[in-house]
């Protein structure tokens, strides 16, 4: 930080905005209008199949959400989904990153494998897991039967809990790599002196982990949290292909409901209101995360 305070040449402001100009132009040309428009639409009664009934209704769409069972149920499912996916992702990614941060034979191979799911489009991911979870011919059934863990083929996705957990598993597999890379990158920059010092203090492995590793990883961890929260809230492709939201409402997340409302029911107004609720929630959570960073004193922009 000391460098910055040394000298502040005039014109930094202008220069900075000039440097940002191309990005700002592209973003505002392409998404500022759609974003603004969608907010406006969220205050309309606007079903594409009834153009004549279109009118401005202020916040009525939002007010209606409070008694909208489909919305409330989807919100609950989403909250749980985010929690489960985020929890699994963070634990697995941290563990994998810790493993990858060690020296061992085959590390390169494992790192390559860790990148594999990243390369898979969500739709393909859904198709892959659908084949694996298939009730009649699925590989999971085959494997578990051959290992003697189940007697006969199971229909994994037919119970609400089952469908939910397996969908979360499929989602985690797909989103893991990004978190692993960020966390691994964070780990690789921990100065070994810190560990050495901790060793001098005769800290056990666990205390080294909680007192050195975790504090150092706070920043990358929070980036993972922000991005994965955003992703999990908007997860659509995999769920859509795997369960279509069922059985019942068990995997109908708010993102899925939103797509259905806009595209299948063509209710653009209500769907936009849903979307803005998602936006507000993600924003709140992200601001919460960032606030956490501020308190730790190492967030700088």
């Amino acid at each position: 930080m000391s460098v910055l305070t040394e000298r502040r040449p005039l014109g930094d402001n202008a220069k900075a905005w000039a440097l940002n100009a191309p990005a700002i132009v592209v973003i505002s040309l392409l998404v500022a209008y759609p974003i603004g428009y969608s907010f406006y639409v969220s205050m309309q009664r606007n079903n594409l199949k009834r153009p004549r009934a279109k009118r401005f209704i202020g916040l009525d769409n939002y007010k209606a959400l409070l008694s909208d069972d489909a919305f409330l149920s989807a919100l609950k499912v989403s909250a749980l989904f985010v929690l489960v996916v985020l929890g699994m992702t963070v634990v697995l990614a941290l563990l994998l990153a810790l493993v990858l941060n060690e020296r061992f034979r085959g590390r390169g191979l494992l790192l390559s494998l860790a990148l594999l799911p990243w390369a898979m489009p969500g739709v393909v991911n859904g198709l892959m897991w659908r084949t694996i979870f298939d009730a009649k011919t699925g590989a999971l059934n085959g494997l578990l039967t051959q290992l003697g863990l189940i007697d006969s083929y199971q229909a994994w996705l037919t119970s609400g809990t089952g469908a939910f957990l397996f969908t979360a598993l499929a989602q985690v597999w797909n989103t893991l790599p990004f978190s692993v890379i960020i966390l691994l990158a964070g780990l690789s920059t921990i100065p070994s002196e810190l560990y050495d010092a901790a060793t001098v203090d005769r800290a056990g492995a666990f205390r080294r982990f909680t007192q050195v590793t975790i504090p150092w990883l706070l920043h990358p961890l929070l980036i993972v949290l922000i991005l994965e929260t955003m992703n999990a809230f908007r997860a659509f492709d995999t769920i859509y292909v795997l369960t279509g939201g069922g059985p019942g409402d068990a995997t109908t997340t708010i993102a899925l409901l939103d797509v259905q409302t806009v595209l299948t029911f063509t209710d653009f107004g209500l769907g936009s209101a849903y979307a803005w609720v998602i936006t507000a929630i993600t924003l709140l959570i992200s601001v919460g995360y960032i606030g956490l960073l501020y308190r730790k004193g190492n967030f700088e922009v």
Binding site: S38, S42, M230, R234, A255, D258
Partner: peptide
């Protein structure tokens, strides 16, 4: 701009 779900826009 990334927090607004794609479906809205």
């Amino acid at each position: 701009t990334r927090m607004v779900p794609g479906i809205a826009i």
